[in-house]
């Protein structure tokens, strides 16, 4: 068991490293005159040159890569290179901040969004999935399936707009301001406001995911219920509810956990659409704005952050799956 964990860890680390290198090259090639793009408008050639010098843009590419991967000279006081903790991911001239600090300041928003949404959609999906399984073939099952179908067929940006319209705009016409349509209040400041501001974004994300997960839960439950050991449980005279929740659900959760981890990773990397529509200042919004502006240190930084989240989540999922059932190692 320990050996496989070490193996997984090594693989995760090497994956991340290669992603870093590829991201570095893509952005260096794509953004042709980075110093000019990063400087404020109408900057003099002198200022642009100064920026190019500070970012070491005129040095050979392998040196730049080395600074990035291991350790490089500080830029404007911000440490450069992965050999620091937290890893120095560069410096953004547009925003005059170290990239790492920039990203870390946006993480609480994205984290709140992601974790809240996960809890909501997982709980609801499991409940609805089990209910649909118990009443398989009935109108309850069909209607849940129908709703799930609809919600997964609507893209997030569309559902976000519609939710914002109906639950904010229309309600506000009647003087009801339960769910603000934008902004963020940190949890530590005011939990109620925190939840109120995140309610609509959570709903948007959760709706799309429930559509997928409810059906995965249902399909997995149905498959498990056809297994021989469920028949053995019935032969022992166990009550139905125990068979569903204690025997079947336990075994059916594997695909749900795996998929859940993947979706969480993607959202952590930036639920760009949701953050944009609801004006949440998270990592996703940072990423897309930087990409549109050409602020390439931030682009590389957010790409690495997203990849790191993905690698971390898949790693954790692998560990959890193996711990639950060591014989499932492929």
């Amino acid at each position: 068991m320990v050996r496989s964990i070490v193996g997984l860890l090594l693989r995760a680390a090497s994956t991340l490293l290669i992603v870093l290198v590829i991201a570095f090259f893509i952005t260096r090639i794509a953004y042709r005159n980075p110093a000019a793009m990063l400087a404020p408008r109408n900057a003099s050639q002198q200022a642009i040159d100064a920026i190019a010098h500070a970012l070491r843009l005129n040095e050979p590419w392998y040196l730049q890569l080395w600074y990035y991967l291991y350790r490089g000279p500080d830029i404007q006081g911000a440490p450069m290179g992965l050999a620091h903790w937290p890893p120095g991911l560069g410096y953004s001239f547009r925003k005059q901040t170290a990239v790492t600090d920039l990203i870390l300041s946006k993480v609480p928003v994205t984290l709140s969004l992601a974790l809240g949404a996960v809890v909501i959609w997982m709980t609801l999906s499991i409940i609805l999935g089990v209910v649909a399984t118990r009443r398989q073939g009935s109108w309850i099952d069909s209607s849940i399936s129908g709703v799930a179908y609809v919600s997964l067929s609507v893209p997030t940006f569309l559902s976000g707009i519609l939710i914002s319209y109906f639950l904010f705009f229309q309600l506000s016409n009647y003087g009801i301001f339960w769910f603000p349509s934008s902004g963020y209040v940190p949890l530590t400041e005011n939990p109620l406001e925190w939840a109120r501001h995140l309610a609509l974004p959570w709903l948007t994300l959760a709706l799309a995911e429930i559509g997928i997960f409810q059906r995965v839960v249902r399909a997995s439950m149905l498959e498990v219920l056809g297994e021989d050991y469920i028949r053995t449980a019935r032969a022992k005279g166990l009550p139905e509810w125990r068979i569903y929740y204690d025997h079947a659900l336990k075994a059916a959760l594997n695909p749900v956990i795996t998929l859940g981890g993947l979706e969480l990773a993607v959202i952590m990397g930036g639920a760009i659409v949701t953050e944009t529509i609801f004006g949440l200042d998270g990592v996703g919004r940072l990423a897309i704005n930087s990409a549109l502006e050409g602020d390439f240190p931030v682009i590389i930084g957010t790409t690495i952050f997203a990849a790191a989240c993905f690698v971390l989540c898949t790693f954790v999922i692998d560990i959890i799956t193996r711990w639950r059932d060591p014989s499932s190692i492929s």
Partner: peptide, 18 residues
């Protein structure tokens, strides 16, 4: 694994800028 780790939109934008 590597290909899956890249975030879709940001990488898409970088490639389009290319």
């Amino acid at each position: 694994d590597i290909a899956l780790s890249f975030p879709f939109i940001v990488t898409a934008l970088s490639l389009l800028t290319l």
